[in-house]
Design a protein around this nucleic acid. Structure first.
Lengths: 335, 335
DNA sequence: TTGTACGCGTTATCAA
DNA sequence: TTGATAACGCGTACAA
């Protein structure tokens, strides 16, 4: 059906071995024959069968993608779009392995082997609940996004969450805020731990003592933001500024503030995280931290490629800078 | 490295042929041997190599995905999430073929053949600018989303855009509106053509004459909505209700209305399309049409699967119902 | 009911 | 510089 290497060999009047050599860039082939073969390849529109290729142990040019939380990642499309750029230029195709839920004994690692996947990118936001031991021990080159796993042939890439929150704190302190709260996301997540540390070191830098009651647990949702903010408002000495772990929780917090008859930023300054669409649409528009997910996506593939090509490469550990987008939800502290 | 069929055969004390038969559900194998083989397969965690499988002409269980507009489709994740369900239960993996932009002679069809892709799903919103002739003529089972191509082994699935707008018009007429405008999206797109027809037939049903100046050209953006609305407001007899082709353009229209010192829905009723997040967050919350993209995604794979399995199957043509979500941007006509 | 042996399309080895 | 041929892992006639 589709033309194969034999068709090309016949048409060019050479052996299949020669065609293969031309296609794989061997230098041990005459310039004229090479040109003739290339000509025929173009004429016949010959594309080598990748199944046969990977069967003989050559590269499959396939990268797998593993989503820990289905498609629910807020930046899924951005990450993918960044990945796309690198996939193109490096020549990989991306395969999404549908996990067989029925089979109790399903193994993602075996699925990868069965598909001759050369490397895997992993992301999602519930990573802490999963075990990646099998994947890491399998030795398949793996790149985690937003999860600090660095072991064997597995490395990671992430935004600079620490610096992001530290910078937000610094900005608020410049606005004369001293009572600054941190509205935390899922406790165990790597990103959140880093952000919490950024909060602490931001305060420490200005010699503001850390107050337990100014840090609220939670998740990344709007409802959580609403409730957490209400608790903060009930304190004897409520904060004058709040740094939230997501834009959605900041939106919830804003609603709580407004429902309490207060206003943003006059009474309380609010900073979000993510810069999703709603951040610029809400009134007042939300000051927030923007992550460069396009770059994270692109670099994740590039790093994975390096990991695949160099078996001895120590696993990468890459932190991407973020940006503070200043809008209308932050202002000078009262008084 | 990974265990292969020979390892299993040896361990089970049978030939590779027997193992293969067991794995492929042949009935011509003794119940006991079958059980023994299955046991070993589980113990050894044997997963057949898919490259070898597809090489011998058996199924590759791979479906390709083609995005006409990169990842920019507003419902990309929803469609994908619907697709995921069907992929799982049918056992397919999904491959995203990185299109080699550099190669002038790049052919998506050949890329598919080279990867032994069994079928392709196509979606995006700039379809009108592309040519799918090669894909359709290749005979690869293809399923288009939101594009009415039905030819050879290519069919399509789409929301019921016609009925959606007709229903919106009917709803506005029930609210006593007579001057109803349609804020059109990209003229050539299939979805938009259907919506325009729905607009016409909705008016015709109520015997309201079609007015050229009530239909504005445009795209799906917020800016366009703003400008188009301004033109409508400048008419001698402006509409009392506007049906928009997207929520974003409705948001733009709302801004134009408010900037003109008028209010929604008191002066003008507004209906969007899509029900994206902003629709429920904006004030007043937007009445809009919700598309069931999860179902569209799931069905697209199911239909493709049928197309793959039955070479004689006439190409499917499936329309999925939509839902009108009534919020606060619509109200009775003035006076 | 089971096993032998060939072929799928490609790459790599080795001889010419 | 080129070509014949043995792998790669699997499915399937066909023979036993």
């Amino acid at each position: 059906m589709a033309t194969n290497i034999h068709d090309v060999a016949k048409a060019a009047g050479v052996s299949v071995a020669t065609v293969s050599k031309v296609l794989n860039g061997y230098t041990t082939v005459n310039a004229n024959t090479k040109e003739r073969v290339l000509q025929i390849v173009k004429e016949l529109q010959f594309y080598p069968n990748s199944a046969a290729r990977s069967l003989v142990g050559r590269r499959s040019m396939t990268i797998g993608i593993f989503l820990t939380t289905g498609l629910a990642h807020p930046f899924f499309t951005q990450i993918l779009s960044g990945m796309e750029q690198a996939l193109k230029s490096l020549g990989y195709d991306l395969i999404y392995l549908a996990q067989m839920s029925r089979a109790k004994e399903y193994s993602f690692v075996h699925h990868c082997h069965s598909r001759n996947v050369e490397g895997v990118v992993v992301f999602g936001f519930q990573q802490e609940e999963m075990s990646f031991d099998e994947l890491i021990e399998s030795g398949i080159p793996t790149l985690f996004i937003d999860l600090d796993i660095k072991k064997g042939r597995a490395g990671y890439i992430s935004s600079d969450n620490h610096e992001a929150v530290e910078r937000a704190i610094r900005y608020l302190i410049d606005l004369n805020h001293h009572r600054i709260s941190f509205l935390s996301g899922n406790k165990d997540s790597y990103a959140n731990r880093q952000r919490l540390e950024g909060y602490r070191s931001g305060l420490a830098e200005a010699e503001i003592p850390y107050r337990e009651d100014y840090v609220s647990e939670g998740d990344f949702t709007r409802e959580m933001g609403y409730q957490a903010m209400n608790k903060l408002l009930a304190l004897a000495e409520p904060p004058t500024a709040v740094v939230c772990c997501s834009d959605m929780s900041a939106v919830g917090a804003m609603e709580a503030i407004q429902d309490a008859g207060l206003s943003v930023p006059e009474d309380i300054s609010l900073i979000g995280f993510d810069d999703i669409e709603i951040a610029s649409n809400i009134r007042p528009a939300l000051t927030t931290t923007r992550q460069d997910m396009i770059t994270i996506g692109r670099r994740s593939i590039e790093l994975l490629d390096e990991l695949i090509k160099d078996k001895e490469l120590p696993p990468p550990e890459v932190i991407i800078p973020t940006e503070l987008i200043i809008r209308k939800s932050t202002g000078p502290a009262k008084g």
